[in-house]
Simulated assay, not measured.
Amino acid sequence: MSGIVTLIGNPRAGSRTHRAALEATEAVARRLGLRNPGETVDLAVLAGEIHAADPSSDLDAALKIVASADVLVVASPTYKGTYTGLLKAFLDLLPSGALRSATALPLLLMGDPRHALAVEVHLRPLLVELGARVPTPGLALLESDLPRLNDVLDRWADRTAPQVEVAA
């Protein structure tokens, strides 16, 4: 396994989702014995490119990084009960089956526990449609969990990493 790619679908740079995604990636990487968690694709930086008539080489590079991932942590805040339109628009640029070599770990950050099923009902099917293996339940991370983020992620990574190892 070469590394983990972190895809962050929050339109705001420096968001809580960004922090949670990177820490989730690091927690899983440690358990998989990876020193370098890998590359990060932050869609806040690419937002203006996604619908551009002539997208930049940065967008093309980001799509290639995501498509070549062995393990892909996909994180988004929950907007209107699902992932962001920015994340969807980016993933729509990938061809069918583009994630067939990836084991994906979906993560949604949400304010209300009533949205907890969104990670399974909305984000998981999108990743599977693109060909990814999603061997574990997605992580529905509540904003109220952020003060104890390391503990939450440690428990999640302990459950997740063995299944990722088998799937990858």
Results as ranks from 00 to 15, higher is better:
Trp156Pro: 11
Arg16Ile: 05
Ala52Trp: 10
Thr25Met: 00
Gly81Ile: 12
Thr25Ser: 00
Ala13Phe: 00
Asp58Pro: 00
Lys80Phe: 14
Asp60Thr: 13
Ala21Lys: 06
Ala24Thr: 15
Gly81Val: 12
Asn10His: 10
Ala47Met: 06
Asp145Met: 02
Ile4Thr: 03
Ala67Phe: 05
Ala20Ser: 00
Arg100Tyr: 14
Glu39Pro: 05
Arg155Tyr: 07
Ser101Phe: 00
Asn10Gln: 05
Leu105Asp: 09
Ala161Asp: 08
Pro162Ser: 07
Ala75Ser: 08
Gly48Asn: 06
Arg159Glu: 15
His51Pro: 11
Pro162Leu: 07
Lys64Cys: 11
Ala44His: 04
Ala98Gly: 03
Asp54Phe: 12
Ala102Pro: 05
Glu120Arg: 11
Thr40Pro: 02
Leu72Tyr: 04
Ala67Ser: 11
Ile50Glu: 05
Tyr83Met: 10
Asp92His: 06
Arg31Ala: 09
Arg100Ala: 14
Thr6Ala: 07
Leu99Gln: 02
Ala47His: 07
Gly81Trp: 11
Leu86Asn: 04
Ala116Thr: 12
Val5Lys: 01
Thr84Ile: 04
Pro125Asp: 04
Leu22Ala: 04
Val128Thr: 12
Ala44Met: 02
Pro162Gln: 09
Ala62His: 03
Thr6His: 05
Ala98Trp: 01
Asp145Ala: 09
Gly48Ile: 06
Gly38Thr: 10
Val41Gln: 01
Gly111Phe: 01
Thr78Glu: 12
Leu146Glu: 08
Ala27Leu: 11
Arg16Phe: 08
Asp70His: 12
Ser15Val: 13
Pro77Ala: 02
Leu127Asn: 06
Val119Glu: 06
Gly38Asn: 07
Gly111Ile: 04
Ala132Gln: 02
Ser101Asn: 10
Leu123Cys: 08
Ser56Met: 15
Asn150Gly: 15
Ser96Cys: 00
Leu99Gly: 02
Ser56Asp: 14
Thr17Trp: 07
Thr40Glu: 04
Arg155Val: 12
Gly38His: 07
Ala104Gly: 07
His51Val: 15
Lys80Pro: 12
Pro113Ile: 03
Val164Trp: 09
Ile65Tyr: 10
Asp154Glu: 14
Lys64Asp: 14
Ala89Pro: 10
Tyr83Arg: 06
Tyr83Thr: 11
Ala168Ser: 09
Glu26Lys: 14
Thr84Val: 01
Arg30Asp: 07
His115Val: 14
Lys64Trp: 10
Phe90Val: 06
Tyr83Asn: 07
Leu109Ile: 09
Val164Lys: 09
Glu49Val: 13
Asn10Phe: 05
Ser144Cys: 01
Ala27Phe: 11
Val71Gln: 04
Ala67Tyr: 05
Pro125Trp: 07
Arg19Leu: 03
Pro106Trp: 03
Gly111Trp: 01
Thr78Asn: 13
Leu105Met: 11
Ala140Tyr: 10
Phe90Leu: 02
Gly111Lys: 04
Leu123Ser: 06
His115Trp: 14
Pro147Val: 09
Thr84Asp: 01
Arg133His: 11
Pro147Cys: 07
Leu146Tyr: 12
Val66Pro: 04
Arg159Thr: 13
Arg155Lys: 12
Leu59Asn: 00
Leu142Trp: 12
Ala157Ile: 01
Val119Tyr: 11
Phe90Thr: 05
Leu43Gln: 03
